[in-house]
Design a protein around this nucleic acid. Structure first.
Lengths: 129, 129
DNA sequence: TATAGTGTTATATATAACCATAACACCGGA
DNA sequence: TCCGGTGTTATGGTTATATATAACACTATA
């Protein structure tokens, strides 16, 4: 498992878990992998894992049940999707638009790159398209 | 001047200086603002400023001339544009495409948001469009 | 009750980032 | 030579992140 050096591991893990939730791999009410499972599987410290989960607790997406594990709250998936969508539209996208403007990339170049990316995804994940 | 807590200040500053170079505000051979000017203007430590400049030195975009200042190398702008373009197409864009897929945003939603962003930019920067 | 699994807390350490402050070394112009 | 400006180095301190290790506290099951 590679972690980007540009961002804290706990943040990347929180994003990864978020992606799984949004993709429906875990649903409201489901239990998530334990702190020790993730720590062992990804070979990172359990406190780092706890920290990642804590960010989702703070968003009221999941809850920690001592002795039992981490559970997705009812309505948690909806809260997460709303939060991520808002972040994307209000923070990520403006930055991307700015970068495209500064780089003076043509629409053609971008569409070609997107299609290239999507064809690679199509190849590796049959259900993506 | 606000710095995002998600990324090191020196990285954000290096990006900011990069943007100015790519936008042609400073050209090959030009001198850039001194470490002390930036430190004072943005109210950050001069070592942090030096670190930002060092990342551009490492990319061979600029050179440090002791006692004189920071100069953009001949060809520096081209190197920078190439590097940023590659990064965008190979790293940023795939991540964006992935996010859009997970968020299941419609093209309509995205185009609307982009137009909103661009109309705001058009309003504040007359020459952007 | 014992066991296995859960999350939490404690302790100590290392690294990266950032700071304030000071001073050294270099450069160009008066 | 002096002065003002330049980048660089040194010192000491704080905070955030991440780690290893250990143990506590809780839960469910046999």
């Amino acid at each position: 498992m590679q972690w980007s050096p540009d961002s804290a591991i706990y943040k990347q893990l929180a994003d990864k878990i978020s992606d799984y939730i949004m993709q429906g791999i875990y649903k409201d009410g489901d239990i998530l992998p334990s702190v020790r499972q993730i720590s062992s599987e990804y070979e990172i410290n359990h406190i780092t894992v706890s920290k990642a989960y804590q960010t989702l607790v703070d968003l009221e997406v999941i809850e920690m049940k001592r002795g039992r594990g981490m559970y997705i709250l009812e309505g948690g998936t909806g809260i997460l999707k709303q939060y991520k969508k808002t972040q994307f539209l209000e923070i990520t996208l403006p930055d991307i638009v700015k970068q495209m403007s500064i780089l003076k990339l043509s629409e053609q170049e971008i569409m070609t790159a997107i299609q290239d990316i999507q064809s690679k995804n199509h190849h590796s994940n049959k259900e993506t398209l």
